[in-house]
Design a protein around this nucleic acid. Structure first.
Length: 234
DNA sequence: AAATCCGCCAACCGCAAGACT
DNA sequence: TAGTCTTGCGGTTGGCGGATT
């Protein structure tokens, strides 16, 4: 089919948009879409939607295929390695979900985005800081990422042979930004749960020139942060 | 047992960029 | 060059199911 026919087809589609189906996909729809893509390949999603007899938009078909039906889509929990990679890549590229997803084979941008919003932003809220703040980034870089590295058994590295995307990042405590302040706020629940006398309030520390996180945190601050993070999924 | 809350995830929406006419 | 359409991306929402009250 040439481009002209595709356009005519697309033009006719606008009439059908009035009664286009939305919401969850049925097994029948999945089968139709999967069979059609298997026979004709990906792309031209508006055309696919129309010719496969699916009362869906092209966008909806594309999304369903990429996020669910594609044979190489990986399902299940995000592994520790994947978590680490997401944190690492997000620190470099920000919310470039599709770019990050390129480095996690089988994972979709949607899945990574959901992971970030449900897990990482939740952690930031618990720490009462903005997810884009330097405070949170430092906490991630100097606390969570090292903790993840500790939890990844050596054997798991063997599972990632040559040619795979996974690599163990080399993190070090570089000097922090002078003048910024690290702060963690606690609730009475924390002291009740842990028995530590810190109680309500917050701990904070202003960063001086040349400081690294390791040497600026007092023992109490370190302890508090560890307690905050002790049971986290990270 | 019923009601409510909350986390997770699939799917939708709006926008921007690029291709095409 | 302007208009139209497709594709891809990131933000947001709604519903489901498990946990809690």
């Amino acid at each position: 089919m040439d481009a002209k026919m595709m356009r005519e087809s697309a033009a006719n589609q606008s009439e059908d948009d009035m009664c286009v189906r939305k919401g969850p996909w049925t097994v029948e729809e999945d089968t139709i879409l999967a069979n059609y893509v298997a026979a004709h390949g990906e792309g031209q999603w508006n055309f696919v939607a129309r010719c496969a007899g699916l009362n869906r938009t092209g966008k909806s078909c594309r999304l369903r295929w990429l996020n669910y039906l594609r044979p190489d889509v990986r399902r299940g929990n995000i592994t520790l390695q994947e978590q680490l990679l997401i944190l690492d890549l997000h620190s470099r590229w920000g919310n470039r979900w599709s770019k990050i997803a390129e480095h996690l084979p089988g994972r979709t941008d949607n899945e990574i985005k959901n992971y970030w919003r449900t897990r990482v932003i939740k952690q930031a809220k618990q720490l009462k800081c903005d997810v884009n703040s330097k405070q949170f980034r430092d906490t991630m870089q100097y606390v969570w990422i090292p903790r993840l590295l500790e939890r990844i058994p050596a054997s798991s590295e063997e599972q990632h042979g040559p040619g795979t995307e996974w690599r163990k990042p080399n993190y070090s405590c570089s000097p922090l930004c002078p003048g910024s302040e690290l702060q963690v706020t606690s609730s009475s629940d924390d002291s009740e749960r842990t028995g530590h006398p810190i109680g309500n309030g917050s701990v904070s520390q202003t960063i001086e020139q040349g400081d690294s996180l390791e040497n600026i945190w007092s023992d109490e601050n370190k302890w508090f942060l560890q307690e905050q993070l002790r049971d986290e999924v990270f």
